[in-house]
Each structure stands twice: as structure tokens, then as C-alpha cells.
């Protein structure tokens, strides 16, 4: 399932995801729901979500240099990467997490670009 094996930690197949939220703001709640859905669809059984509420512990923002909320950080597999926002744009999330075969990704990209300029 994981497209990029080069950077994947061979010891662990578990994805460690950290979602930074600010209490129960609408986007935070949406991001959590979207993340759960995407993980269930694409990472069934091999993911771990940690939710960090920056309202209760703002200093936690420092560790991952968080500036906007919600932000998702992929702790593993490395390299760590960030997706900012409520994760409502599923294609964008999958693209960044590289959770789809390359050919499909390329197709999607072209689709998107076409859809855009065509409108």
C-alpha cells in the first residue's frame, strides 16, 4: 500500500500521525473526522493518531513549528511532513502523504489542472 518504500522505516509499518488542534473549533473537528476517514480507507489497521490540543498546551507548538491550526504532522514514516488545514481536500491529502500509485497521482494531477483551466 505504501508507495514509497525507500524512506519507510522497515522496523515499523505503523504510521504515526499527530494532529494539532485548538479545542473544538469547527476546522479542528473536521480535520479529525477527515483524518480518521482517510486512514480507515487507506491505512487500515496500521496507523496511530495522536491529537495535540494547543489550547491546553500551547508550548507543544514549538516541537513541530506549528503556525496554523489544524495541522497534521506525519512523524513516521520519515521524512516527517506537514499538511495544514481541515484535510477536506482528500486528493491533496493523499497526494502529500503519497498514498497512491504514481501513475494514478499523475493522472489526478492532470485532471485537476485541466479542471481548473477549463473552468
Amino acid at each position: 500500500m505504501t508507495a514509497n518504500s525507500e524512506d519507510t522505516d522497515p522496523k515499523s509499518d505503523i504510521w504515526e500521525l499527530r494532529l494539532y488542534v485548538a479545542g473544538q473549533t469547527a476546522k479542528s473537528v473536521a480535520a479529525f473526522k477527515n483524518l480518521q476517514r482517510i486512514c480507515e480507507d487507506h491505512l487500515t489497521g496500521k496507523y496511530k493518531i495522536e491529537v495535540v490540543d494547543l489550547l491546553t498546551n500551547p508550548l507543544m507548538a514549538r516541537e513541530d513549528r506549528i503556525v496554523a491550526i489544524p495541522t497534521l504532522v506525519r512523524k513516521s514514516p520519515s521524512p516527517s511532513l506537514k499538511i495544514v488545514g481541515d484535510l477536506s481536500n482528500t486528493e491533496h491529502v493523499l497526494l502529500r502523504l503519497q498514498l497512491q500509485p504514481m501513475s494514478q497521482i499523475t493522472d489526478r494531477k492532470e485532471d485537476q489542472r485541466e479542471g481548473h483551466s477549463g473552468s
Binding site: A22, T25, A26, K27, S28, L54, P58, A61, I66, V67, A68, I69, P70, K82, I83, V84, G85, D86, L87, S88, N89, H92, R96
Partner: peptide
């Protein structure tokens, strides 16, 4: 990525 999220109206808090 942060700018994209802001433009799309996907964030509702800042640090």
C-alpha cells in the same frame, strides 16, 4: 502548504 490552507479557508486558528 500553510498558505494553500489559508487560501482555501481550511484553518480556523493560528499560533
Amino acid at each position: 502548504e500553510t498558505l494553500r490552507a489559508i487560501r482555501s479557508g481550511e484553518i480556523d486558528a493560528v499560533v
